[in-house]
Amino acid sequence: MNAEPAVQQRLLELAEVDAELNRIQHRRRAMPELAEIADAERSVRERKDAVVAAETRGADLDRDIQRLERDVDGVRARVQRDKGMLAGAGVSAKQASDLQHELDTLARRQSVLEDELLEVMEQREAVQTNLDAARTELAAGEQILADAAARRDAAAGDLDVAEAGRKRDREPLVAGLPADLLAVYERSRVRQGIGAALLRARRCGACRLELDTQEISHIRTAPPNEVLRHEECGVIMVRTSESGL
């Protein structure tokens, strides 16, 4: 394949633009905000789990409190009933004895229920404290995530602007190249990440390997318009006064 030396040298301009586009893509993938966001998202998930666990525990204790309060109310109602019957007229000695026995039993039952209710209410208060703290931590974690996402979006916006600018720079360079030369360049860029490189001081500018004597001899005798490719990496080598030939 042949192309005028000036045309080949335009490949170096194109390669520099493409190298900058590659660097932009690397910076996009390696933004520190991405790692921050991943950590923040993991933290938010854990804190949400903690909130849900506290809410679930609180709901369970609320049901226990309601059950115990119903039981206490039931016992108190029976106590009032029995006291009313005991104070009524026409109660035999046996009935009075039975009612008093039941009142004593109810008093013990009420004491047990009230102690249990107090204990559960204390547990519920502790759970609420934990829930409030978990919600505060979740809100803080969500703010950290939002801040990191905002920084990521700002950084990505800057990269978008830089990328768009370099793509605009690329268009006239591509438009001025022969189709067959551009096709070879693009294939090399896809495979190697670099389409063309300067041959400087007998070294390939892409892989940095020094060319052997046989290859240098071939390059010296090649016509200036011949498009040369490095045998090792396949990249188009562009000759200039810096090539050391």
Rank of each mutant, 00 (worst) to 15 (best):
S243Y: 07
Q8M: 12
M237C: 11
G88E: 04
R23S: 08
A15I: 05
T136C: 03
G195A: 05
D64Y: 15
A126R: 13
E210K: 04
L145A: 02
V161W: 05
S217L: 00
A87N: 08
I24D: 02
C207R: 01
D158Y: 05
L117P: 11
V52C: 10
R76V: 15
G165K: 15
A50P: 04
L12K: 07
R45P: 10
G90F: 00
I65L: 11
Q123V: 07
L118M: 13
A197I: 07
M121T: 14
D18N: 06
G234D: 13
V174Y: 00
L182A: 06
V184L: 15
M1G: 15
V75W: 05
D180P: 08
L131D: 11
A149K: 06
D169T: 04
H26A: 11
E4V: 10
V127S: 13
L138E: 15
T213I: 07
A40G: 00
A6D: 09
L11V: 12
D71M: 05
Q100N: 13
R168V: 09
L138N: 12
R45K: 14
L86A: 06
D147P: 01
V52S: 13
E55W: 07
K83H: 05
R191S: 08
V120P: 08
E125G: 13
L12G: 09
A164W: 06
A140N: 07
E4M: 11
V174N: 00
R189C: 07
S217E: 03
L159H: 04
R78K: 06
G176M: 02
A206P: 01
R208M: 08
G193L: 00
V75R: 02
Q8G: 15
E41V: 02
R47F: 06
D39N: 02
L21V: 01
L182E: 06
A139H: 08
T56A: 15
E137G: 09
K94C: 10
